[in-house]
């Protein structure tokens, strides 16, 4: 008798990194921001987060059962979508908003296009854009005062910043999230912890947040002050609004960002430029959502044209130059 030996194509060993592991890392990285949201805006935030995550996971399971596919809720990708969406919502929204938003993100944006790896825009952001178009008042007025937990319907500090180029908030207030804003976007400290965790764990590429925030800061410094150049407050531009959560957690979504390092840098820069344009000269107070969605759509184009330099490229280049030189002569 002979043992049955397995025949497969090499390599015969695989790394220990898995899709689930990566997704779990992202969930872990988002937890500080979620905790910060609950601390700053109270129990309501927790409700919004839980509703969003539960709806995302349930939608994925229901859809996959309905179309008789394998149920893949254990890969954590639905959890991330739900969590990300919740963190971009105003803390005082009615609970049905995250429920509908997450269901939309999972079913319409992700599963209908083929599930994990096949969506062409970031599900959480597409759902946020949908909610913004569907219930604009809830999405722009349901704020809570940090640590006071009372409802506020005034505009976020970003609106004033965009028109005047300055903000009354101190760096400390901005860094710790002591301002009106979506429940997960305000606390820069928590986002930084999560973002650095992902970079250290080699989950995300630092080039996207670097390109994004860098472009935004430099652009705001140049154009941010009305009537004057090179006097804008680039630092506050990064800390206000959703630029931080967007650049670290949304724009870095694998499926909808370029695959090459250089392409990722370009995506970050592109998103930064679009955010800047919308903020300074556009009709909306915040442009992060649309900037990243736009760059999601451009990603296939970037992947097509921004390719790594292949081994031996120099020889081909030399041959080309020689051929070109020969022609001119």
């Amino acid at each position: 008798m002979e043992n049955r030996l397995l025949i497969t194509s090499s390599p015969h060993i695989k790394s220990t990194r898995t899709v689930q592991g990566i997704m779990l890392d992202v969930v872990i990285a988002l937890i500080p921001a979620a905790i910060a949201g609950v601390v700053l805006f109270g129990f309501r935030s927790l409700l919004v987060i839980l509703a969003s995550v539960a709806s995302a996971v349930a939608s994925e399971a229901v859809y996959q059962i309905a179309v008789k596919r394998e149920v893949t809720i254990n890969d954590f990708s639905a959890v991330i979508t739900g969590l990300l969406l919740a963190l971009t919502l105003p803390p005082n929204v009615p609970v049905w908003i995250p429920v509908i938003g997450s269901a939309f993100a999972i079913v319409i944006v992700k599963q209908v296009f083929g599930g994990l790896g096949a969506n062409f825009v970031n599900p959480a952001l597409a759902a946020r854009a949908f909610l913004l178009a569907a219930w604009p008042l809830h999405m722009t007025q349901d704020w809570l005062n940090p640590r006071a937990y009372d409802a506020v319907t005034s505009a976020t500090p970003l609106v004033a910043f965009n028109s005047t180029g300055q903000t009354a908030l101190t760096f400390k207030q901005l860094f710790l999230g002591q301002r009106l804003g979506s429940l997960g976007e305000t606390c820069i400290l928590a986002l930084l912890i999560g973002g650095l965790y992902l970079i250290v764990r080699d989950v995300i590429d630092y080039r996207i947040p670097l390109g994004y925030l860098g472009t935004l800061a430099i652009g705001t410094w140049v154009f941010g002050k009305p009537g004057a150049f090179f006097q804008g407050d680039g630092l506050s531009a990064m800390l206000l609004g959703g630029a931080f959560i967007g650049s670290f957690f949304m724009a870095t979504d694998y499926v909808t960002s370029p695959v090459t390092p250089r392409g990722r840098l370009y995506m970050g820069i592109g998103a930064g430029i679009i955010t800047l344009i919308i903020r300074l000269w556009g009709g909306y107070p915040e442009g992060v959502t649309y900037a990243i969605l736009f760059m999601n759509l451009v990603t296939p184009l970037i992947d097509r044209y921004v390719v790594p330099r292949y081994y031996g490229y120099g020889h081909d280049e030399m041959a080309r130059r020689k051929a070109a030189g020969g022609e001119t002569r």
């Binding site: 009615p94 949908f130 178009a133 569907a134 219930w135 604009p136 809830h138």
Partner: peptide
């Protein structure tokens, strides 16, 4: 329910 304005767009 609260109508979703997006459906008219």
């Amino acid at each position: 329910f609260e109508p979703a304005a997006v459906m008219l767009t």
